[in-house]
Design a binder for these strands. Structure first.
Lengths: 343, 343
DNA sequence: CTGAAAGCGCTTACAG
DNA sequence: CTGAAAGCGCTTACAG
């Protein structure tokens, strides 16, 4: 079906090797006549020749491709637009493509099925976008896999790029402390189910950052976690109404994730608590939330940097597969919408 | 570096063909002894054999891979999490991988550089995630490219899967009309820059849906588009304050995209307009906004369906490359947060 | 019933 | 200076 070098060679009346060299501009040391080169190039164009990358790979031993393996939970997975775009940008500089693969889901029955990228040679390296929800079997299979790899969004000593969630929790809290707040609550993401394979490191780290900042300022942590239960969408407003009706209600809130912002806002509105005058809010969220209508100040995940840095680290590892690289921590940025004020 | 069939064959003392057949379970018609088969399998495991997919592709002529080409604008591009995940899910059923490529950006200097996927055979088909910001040269090069392709998120007669933006605009408007609203405003996304290569079809279609619904109800359209100018983040609140202070101010708003929700909410709050009692809001947004803290009722883009249906269509086209398939329109869903009320 | 050989499309070291 | 041949890793039709 597809046109091959051989077909061009037959039409022009030369050997495939000549065609290959001319089309790849490797004719530097060869003195093919301009006429012949032109004939080859034109025939290639006329026939609609497109080189077959597989054949090239077999020779070169490289794939020109990096695979991103993403852990997921049902329809959700940590795969933000900005992360992908910045990975792509950095890969482009290195003339590599991006292959996307979802890791088997903890909620699915086949949660230890090995994905094809881990059973086949099809990339030069792996980026593991690992939040949680991945079975220990798969993790160990990944670790044993021959290709160079870099982890993102998880906490590892080496070969890893991840956001500094502890610092983010600390910064958000300090910001509120500096504005004079004393009763600062930390609210976990009660809308989201934890995994049977454990929690994401950000859950403990963000809280830990908050707790340290509070302790350092001599303040008592106030943590609300719904007692570990998941609170459905239509119960969330009630949940916050209870918190905001407490005798010593918090004057400021640090929120694990922005999913609960609507519930807090509408609850505050109904009770008659004005934001930011009577209640300050800082949440954590992703880059796109800034364009998608987020209504609270937020610590924004360093998705762009994570994409870029992980690719750079992987390229380095592809060049020197045995080298262990010290992990890289990334800072969050701050997004202002006006939900934070002096106490 | 990587282990090959030959190495296994040498260790076990058989021919490569035997190894290939045993490891691929193609030994049905062959009567290799259990002992030999076991030796081959164990050696493969011990050496850490992983088949090279390129070599396989060269033989089979197929790549087991579908490329997604995404148009983009700077760091932005239409690449929602749910779209990717659902594509991946459907591709997995067909044992294909997903290759991600960004199309050259209208804002970059090399906006007509052909991406490698369009110069090389590396996939069995293409999905074109085309919003706008792509140069006409590239579009025509895509159209000429030999592989089967399916377009998404754009309006084409055939080989295309796209959200019914006209209907979405109509439904949002009708919902407000049924609740008794008469002064319903349509507000464009004044925060977003249009492209030099034209607009996305959703811009005219959503408005057209709104306009038709208004007309049918005998109401006069009220369109606010900032006179075509881009309004920066710190000017948006003022923009809405002006609109909401008009003598005959709208009692309801249909919003092109959710990016402006924070500005509307805080503007309404300051003027003292209660939501939803005195102002109803319906916006349009993506799937993830539902988890990322969207604070307004919204028509949600059918990202999951678009991913699934586009892959199904492409698989069909890969089987029958010459077949033209009638385009598929998808419905938006409705996300309720409580910003809509009777007038 | 089994193994050796041909061939997929390409590139490049090597012989003439 | 040029062209034919070898070979990348794999699969499978074909000869013994």
């Amino acid at each position: 079906m597809a046109v091959t070098l051989k077909q061009i060679a037959d039409v022009v009346g030369v050997h495939v090797s000549v065609v290959s060299r001319v089309l790849n501009d490797k004719d530097g040391e060869f003195d093919y006549t301009e006429k012949r080169k032109k004939a080859i190039r034109e025939t290639a164009r006329k026939l609609g020749y497109v080189p077959n990358i597989s054949a090239r790979s077999v020779k070169s031993g490289a794939f020109g491709c990096v695979a991103l393996l993403v852990s997921s939970h049902g329809e959700r997975s940590y795969l933000p637009n900005r992360l992908l775009v910045s990975m792509h940008k950095e890969l482009e500089k290195n003339e590599k493509h991006l292959l996307l693969t979802k890791l088997p889901d903890a909620t699915s029955e086949d949660y230890s099925r090995t994905p094809t990228v881990l059973k086949t040679l099809m990339a030069d390296g792996l980026i593991l976008d690992y939040t949680h929800h991945v079975s220990p079997e798969i993790i160990s299979r990944i670790e044993k896999f021959i290709l160079p790899k870099v982890w993102i969004n998880t906490k590892r000593e080496t070969d890893c790029v991840y956001p500094d969630n502890l610092k983010a929790g600390m910064e958000a809290t300090n910001k509120l402390i500096e504005l004079g707040h004393k009763r600062i609550a930390y609210i976990t993401d009660v809308s989201y189910q934890t995994s049977k394979f454990g929690e994401h490191y950000s859950i403990s780290d963000r809280y830990e950052g908050y707790a340290r900042a509070m302790k350092k300022a001599g303040l008592k942590p106030m943590k609300f976690d719904g007692e570990g239960k998941i609170i459905g969408k239509n119960q969330q407003e009630k949940y916050f109404t209870e918190i905001l009706s407490l005798k010593n209600r918090p004057t400021a809130i640090v929120l694990y994730w922005s999913s609960l912002v609507p519930a807090i806002l509408s609850s505050a509105r109904k009770i008659g608590i004005k934001i930011p005058d009577e209640l300050s809010i800082i949440t954590v969220s992703g880059c796109t939330a800034q364009n998608d209508g987020l209504c609270a100040d937020a610590m924004i995940e360093p998705e762009i940097e994570m994409g870029k840095e992980s690719v750079k680290m992987l390229i380095e590892k592809i060049k020197k597969p045995d080298k262990q690289i010290k992990s890289l921590l990334l800072n969050f940025s701050y997004f202002e919408t006006g939900t934070v004020k002096k106490c």
